[in-house]
Design a protein around this nucleic acid. Structure first.
Lengths: 121, 121
DNA sequence: ATATTATATGAATGTTCGTTCATATTTGCA
DNA sequence: TGCAAATATGAACGAACATTCATATAATAT
């Protein structure tokens, strides 16, 4: 992974920066919720199956993570602009879901790193 | 991955925030350089073998990424404080290397996400 | 001891970012 | 047409952060 182009680094920076906020992490974790997933491979929330593509509307997310509607909407826009989530409109509601498996993997790796604490390689 | 504790989210935020900076990304990518790695599993720079644990001293990193010594030292401290790199002293030099495989995985996932561009799941 | 090399640190600066509050926009329905 | 629900947006404020410059510390060798 040497000679990575500057534009690539900038995109990586953007991706990680977007993910590195408590509010946005709470939102993404809410969208990672695997309550209804029934696939066998599913463990620790980092399931790569489409079954795990939970989608939730703005107000539900706000309620779930205990944040204001305005804040959640603002941060969802940040996530959307950075391509971490996708949207689907239905009547007056807008349903958000994680964009792809890389986002789930990113959350999974970060989660596992934190969980394993101070252990080394 | 529901009901993630707030302290866990804060730690994830810290990890991602630390990783989400161009200078620090350049530093970490320099430490991910797999030029000398000879293991078979090694591909795309996200090798999990210890062979890939490249270590480099501050000035070499500064030269390689084209940044000032002061900046690199500052950012290495940030990386060290957040536990993304480890150090080894030898005479007057301090050798830095990535902390563990989670950091390599994190870089790899971010890299792949950027590389795959606009493709979806 | 002194000079030299390597690294770390502190202060200062400009910028970016998260959050709140108030308000606007959009869509469905009576 | 008008009301209500859901979401989006703009301004403003304070806090956090990356970088630079100058300087300090640490370790080695002559």
């Amino acid at each position: 992974m040497k000679d990575v182009k500057l534009t690539t680094i900038k995109k990586m920076e953007s991706l990680l920066e977007t993910a590195s906020d408590s509010t946005r992490l709470k939102i993404m974790l809410a969208l990672l919720d695997d309550d209804e997933c029934e696939c066998e491979e599913c463990n620790c929330g980092v399931c790569e199956s489409l079954n795990c593509m939970i989608e939730k509307c703005v107000n539900d997310i706000a309620m779930e993570i205990g944040a204001s509607q305005s804040l959640v909407s603002h941060q969802l826009k940040v996530l959307k602009d950075a391509d971490l989530v996708r949207t689907r409109k239905e009547k007056t509601k807008v349903y958000y879901s994680l964009k792809d498996r890389h986002i789930r993997l990113l959350l999974g790796v970060a989660y596992e790193h934190v969980m394993e604490g101070e252990e080394n390689d």
